[in-house]
């Protein structure tokens, strides 16, 4: 099993749809979104909301992987986003929408600071530091008692109604998380298809070669990290306000591992499509096993191992192989 080939960091694949197909798909999707809350059961609305949020987190993690860096700090950025906006709305009386933006920006700033400091170190050290950063953040809040301490922050006020959209039911959150996902998807699809994504791939695949071609590695790594940080932070904000409660317990290693799961489940070569596919599977499964206490980590853990062993290229690649498309089929 040539795992390296199957688990290519830096290689991207474009799932290209024809023009008409894209248009039709778009209309269907938007129609489904608008009609959604009126036809979809509450439980499934929840699943779809989580789907959007995990997709965003997964995409963000994946873009950092593309640049060749394996990070374990998704939980940290979720945490930063969540706490920033919670503090702003709860303690500073800030309305939701500016707090949302602020949550994303503050995450981005942390990512910038961390990235600049940490990308000088090599792979293994980077991994350890991102993990320690996430854990220390969590423990810092938990032990010092600041920002709600171990109990957490609760009762975040919901955003006010916008026309017919209300946030007191899942409806508003449904629309918001979809909107966020669309923005994330657009951004990262553009990244993937443009020179930006190509440069990320070059850095991930053959950094010396890239450097010899004039690519300033540090700049792009930090850039990718900040991008990922911002969007993960935004997802964290939505998570916090949707659940109207957060605590340090929400941000252990587990969410970081879930973001990895959704990314590899869908397929590492697919920056946007991968996590989107992976996240829907995870969210659906998770909702049904959440009741039984040990089952969640068990399933996620087993899935992680199983995917690496039996389908390291992810679902999308596997499906494409089965249907004869894709690069391997071409040559």
């Amino acid at each position: 099993m040539n795992i390296r080939d199957h688990f290519r960091i830096g290689v991207w694949e474009n799932v290209k749809l024809g023009r008409n197909a894209t248009l039709v798909a778009l209309i269907l999707i938007i129609g489904a979104i608008v009609a959604g809350p009126y036809f979809i059961a509450s439980r499934w609305q929840h699943i779809l909301i989580m789907w959007c949020l995990w997709s965003i987190a997964g995409i963000s993690w994946l873009v950092i992987l593309k640049v060749g860096e394996f990070s374990l700090c998704s939980a940290a950025f979720l945490c930063i986003g969540a706490y920033s906006s919670s503090v702003m709305t709860l303690k500073l009386g800030c309305p939701f929408w500016p707090a949302l933006i602020a949550g994303g920006l503050i995450s981005g700033i942390f990512a910038l600071a961390l990235g600049v400091v940490v990308f000088r170190l090599k792979g293994l050290y980077f991994l350890v530091i991102t993990y320690l950063f996430a854990e220390m953040l969590r423990l810092g809040i938990s032990l010092t008692g600041y920002l709600g301490g171990g109990t957490g922050l609760y009762g975040m006020p919901e955003p006010g109604n916008i026309g017919f959209i209300t946030f007191s039911t899942k409806q508003g959150w449904f629309y918001l998380s979809f909107l966020l996902l669309l923005i994330t998807a657009f951004t990262f699809r553009r990244v993937e298809a443009s020179r930006i994504g190509r440069v990320y791939s070059y850095i991930g695949m053959a950094p010396d070669l890239a450097e010899s071609l004039g690519v300033r590695i540090m700049k792009y790594k930090v850039q990718a990290f900040v991008l990922g940080g911002i969007f993960t932070g935004l997802a964290g904000v939505v998570m916090a306000h949707y659940f109207t409660g957060i605590s340090p317990e929400s941000f252990t290693l587990y969410p970081s591992l879930v973001t990895q799961l959704v990314a590899i489940l869908g397929g590492v070569p697919y920056l946007v499509a991968g996590p989107v596919v992976g996240a829907i599977i995870y969210s659906a499964v998770d909702e049904y096993v959440a009741a039984i206490s040990g089952l969640r980590p068990l399933i996620v853990g087993v899935l992680l191992v199983v995917i690496i062993f039996f389908m390291p290229q992810g679902i999308i690649s596997r499906l494409r192989q089965l249907f004869g498309k894709g690069r391997e089929a071409k040559s």
Binding site: R8, R198, M205, A206, L213
Partner: peptide, 14 residues
């Protein structure tokens, strides 16, 4: 060294 998984044309573009 090449950027594997890419076409010749794409490698040139790099």
């Amino acid at each position: 060294v090449q950027f594997r998984g890419q076409t010749v044309f794409e490698n040139l573009l790099a």
